[in-house]
Design a protein around this nucleic acid. Structure first.
Length: 282
DNA sequence: ATTAATGTTCAGAA
DNA sequence: TTTCTGAACATTAA
């Protein structure tokens, strides 16, 4: 569920740990299976001990805690992971606790109900490999129109599916793909190769517009209420969704069409058949 | 009681 | 090469 806006909100929420020095890292023995942690705990602790947190970064849907020795702790929340400075939703699913000295926030907690996420420490070399542009595309807020077009235009896959492909650009998931295509007025089933030249600037603008708008509301907390910011507060962008999970309601723009739901790559897509009427070529 | 569904990423197959 | 499928996991709803 956490996509770019939610992860960006997490990052902003943990800025208070910058300047702190790593004292310890604990993995509470909970009732559930351990999550993926790399490298092994002993090695991990040896490499982060006493290091100052020099900054917080983000790459797509990942939170980066940058350390003085150029290593970076990468939190990947996947479905239900949260990076918190406050009390977690429950004790059972606290996966990692990072304790710091000399920062206003003494502890960073990684909580993950389903445990699909991971915590990894990457050396500079590993970062280069992990974040190379063929493994993980440029961040969705960093691409310009030309790069967007270059990375998508050749493909025959539907634009909705391609937007969620982290190898093309990083950060967009199921929710924001629907919202972005609605704002761009592009039918989600349109093959990338069939998108008109004049539509790329509109798509690019919609990517920025929707993501920045969602960030300003601190992301979306959906039905099960899992997603929270670093202070355990809900996002508010769910109150501003235009089409996501709005099947059957009147289109907010044209007021004639009714929002439809289709399934693409085993996931729900929402769109307005009236506003987004590019003809998919097959 | 079991089954499906959730939504992201990866490995492996088509 | 690109695209698709199932698994990873925990919890809830049917």
């Amino acid at each position: 569920m956490p996509e770019l806006p939610e992860v960006e909100t997490m990052c902003r929420g943990i800025l208070a740990i910058v300047g702190g020095v790593v004292q310890r890292l604990d993995v509470p023995r909970g009732a559930c299976k351990p999550i993926r942690i790399q490298p092994q705990l002993r090695e991990l602790r040896r490499r982060i001990a006493g290091q100052e947190v020099t900054g917080i970064g983000r790459k797509g849907k990942r939170v980066l805690v940058q350390l003085a020795n150029r290593h970076v702790l990468v939190f990947e929340p996947r479905m239900t992971g949260l990076v918190l400075l406050s009390t977690p939703p429950d004790r059972a699913h606290v996966r990692v606790i990072l304790t710091l000295l000399g920062s206003p926030a003494p502890q960073l907690v990684y909580w993950d109900r389903r445990g699909l996420g991971s915590v990894r420490l990457l050396s500079p070399g590993e970062q280069a490999r992990e974040f190379s542009t063929d493994r993980l595309g440029p961040d969705a807020l960093d691409v310009d129109v030309d790069e967007l077009k270059d990375r998508f235009a050749g493909s025959r896959s539907p634009i909705k599916v391609a937007l969620m492909d982290q190898g093309r650009i990083a950060g967009i998931g199921n929710l924001y793909a629907s919202e972005i295509l609605f704002v761009a007025r592009i039918h989600p089933a349109t093959p990338c190769a069939a998108i008109r030249t004049t539509d790329w600037p509109r798509l690019h603008a919609a990517v920025r517009m929707v993501l920045e708008e969602a960030i300003s509301y601190e992301g979306s907390t959906l039905g099960d209420g899992t997603y929270r910011n670093a202070l355990n507060q809900q996002g508010r962008y769910q109150n501003h969704h235009r089409v996501y999970q709005k099947e059957g309601t009147r289109c907010p723009v044209c007021r004639r069409g009714t929002i439809r739901r289709i399934v693409q790559a085993q996931r729900s897509t929402f769109y307005c058949p009236s506003c987004q009427r590019n003809r998919p070529s097959r």
